[in-house]
Amino acid sequence: MSLLSAYLRRQYKLLLLLLGFFVIFAAVFSLYDLPSEAVAYAAALCLALGLALFAVGYSRFLARHRELRLLLRQVREKVLPLPPPRGLLEEDYQALVQALCQNRARLAVENENRLRDMTDYYTFWAHQIKTPIAALGLLLQEREDSGALEVELLKIEQYVEMVLSYLRLDSSSTDYVLQDCDLDGILRGAVRKLAKMFILKKITLDFQETGKTVLTDGKWLGFVVEQVLSNALKYTPEGGTIRIYGDRDTVVIADDGIGIRPEDLPRVFEKGFTGYNGRTERKSTGIGLYLSKMVMERLYHGITVTSRPGQGTLVRLDLSRGKRVAE
């Protein structure tokens, strides 16, 4: 809708009133048989005055419209710098808007404090729970038949790390240290951490060293590799194979597991999405790949997933963008 038509719609009552006046005066003039020249002259004067007033009103309408559009860009401010009110009703509306802004600012502060308290609590809890987990790990090492228990304990430790990563991801205190890292060292560290799972499920690892040095944050990239490998281990049957190899600036992690349905593939990085396999197997939280995607974006890397049901899944970690950022 154009501004002119909007202004006309705003003034339609006044226009209808003026039209009614015109009809009444025309009827009276015709009844008294007044000279047409005098009537036309009066009508011309009224029309000229009306057009002048219309132009002034329309210009003010445009000016106020521009002011409000500028204020729209400052809508996140606690107090909006509203223009001077033109009348009592407009003053009331502005007071209402300012009250809403102040109330919104108060709620935002309350929510921020509540979120900070909750984050601090869960961070404290996650750090504290690591102590009994480590103690259980030491106790299990003394038992000969503790393989399955150690794997379950490793899963608990992974979930704790996932909670910490989730809390740290959007924290203002999280620093991403981009530096040259030995890619094979990061990959070996993730494999070493999940070695018990490989052994328990009798899964073959085909690890081809890349010989690459990449610009990244080694800790966060290691977290992503662990998440991808953990998913591969979950959905690869006993006796299967997981391959890790390099393809130029890309690390490929491939398995011959159950795969992912085509309709689920576009949503695998959505927060909380588990897909058909996750609902059937009840092994998925829908958080791992979401966190991996977020971390890779913050490291200026990329991650893609391709899969076929019954044939396996292939995950590509594109590490080339970090190099371009450094340049």
Rank of each mutant, 00 (worst) to 15 (best):
A95Q: 14
V163T: 13
L100R: 05
N111V: 04
K196C: 13
D175P: 06
F198Q: 04
A148W: 12
L96C: 03
Y121P: 03
L88P: 02
F207K: 01
L221T: 02
E157R: 12
L88R: 14
V109F: 12
Q98E: 10
I129H: 06
D182I: 01
V163I: 11
Y176A: 05
K193V: 09
Q94I: 01
K130D: 15
D180C: 02
E150H: 06
G218P: 01
P84V: 02
V163L: 13
E90K: 06
Y122G: 02
S173T: 15
L140T: 00
L169P: 07
L82Y: 03
L96D: 01
R106M: 01
T213W: 10
E91N: 10
L88S: 12
R168V: 01
I129L: 15
H127S: 03
L187Y: 00
H127E: 10
V97G: 00
E209A: 08
R114E: 15
R192V: 13
I186P: 03
A134E: 14
Y176P: 01
A105W: 00
E112N: 14
K202D: 14
P83W: 05
D120L: 14
A148G: 07
F207G: 04
E110T: 12
L138C: 08
L183T: 02
Y121A: 15
S173E: 15
T216K: 03
P132R: 11
L205Q: 08
G137D: 08
V160M: 02
T204N: 11
P83R: 07
A105I: 05
Y166L: 13
S172M: 10
Q128R: 13
M118I: 13
G137V: 05
T204I: 11
H127A: 09
L187P: 01
L205G: 05
L139A: 10
L215V: 09
K202F: 06
T119Y: 04
Q141L: 14
E91D: 07
N103R: 07
G222A: 04
